[in-house]
């Protein structure tokens, strides 16, 4: 089973979601900005990293956790991955795409603009604020993703709850 945390134009929210999944962040409290900024892959995706998979690590159950960002059409990308699994008659959780998109896509646009003008510090600050604001939503997203029915078992994986 592989988890793919998908972001829009940057890796900020997928990096937080992956850290939550890998229990590198405490889900009970909103982390400080410094803690978020120190996360691996908590950054803007470079031009040539559009659609590139980054392995964040393996969780306690041995499932691989990836993150990726796309500049456009995240829903088409998610559908295409599901379609690929369908081609091989694999269950959907074999490569589960988990959307970590900002509630307002303009947030990503503002970040991109700040970065374009060389205001990278300001962009990172905005990203930290965005990640802190939607931290609870990310916790819920990751919990839901991990509660997927495990193959061969009739029960939900309760041990995966964070």
């Amino acid at each position: 089973m592989n988890y793919l945390y998908l972001g829009f134009a940057d890796l900020y929210l997928p990096a937080v979601a992956a850290a939550l999944h890998l229990q590198q962040l405490d889900a009970a409290a909103v982390p400080a900005a410094a803690k978020l900024a120190s996360l691996p892959y908590f950054r803007r995706a470079a031009r040539d990293e559009d659609g590139k998979l980054f392995l964040a690590g393996s969780d306690s159950a041995g499932h691989k956790v990836f993150l990726l960002s796309v500049k456009t059409q995240p829903e088409v990308v998610a559908r295409a991955v599901e379609s690929l699994l369908g081609l091989y008659r694999l269950p959907l959780h074999e490569a589960k795409v988990v959307s970590c998109l900002p509630g307002n896509p303009q947030q990503a646009m503002w970040g991109r603009m700040l970065s374009k003008f060389g205001l990278n510090g300001l962009e990172k600050e905005l990203a930290c604020r965005m990640a802190r604001n939607c931290f609870k939503d990310l916790v819920r997203t990751v919990t839901d993703a991990r509660l997927t029915r495990q193959p061969g078992f009739g029960l939900f994986d309760s041990s995966a709850r964070i």
Binding site: L4, G51, T72, Q73, V76, V77, V81, Y88, L90
Partner: peptide
């Protein structure tokens, strides 16, 4: 033989699918 509509994200979709296929060993 298949056909696929990717809107304006053709290269991205292809890149993602090839990497996922690599993870799946196909």
């Amino acid at each position: 033989v298949y056909c696929l509509g990717c809107r304006n994200a053709g290269e991205t979709v292809e890149r993602v699918l090839l990497q996922v296929a690599e993870v799946l060993g196909v």
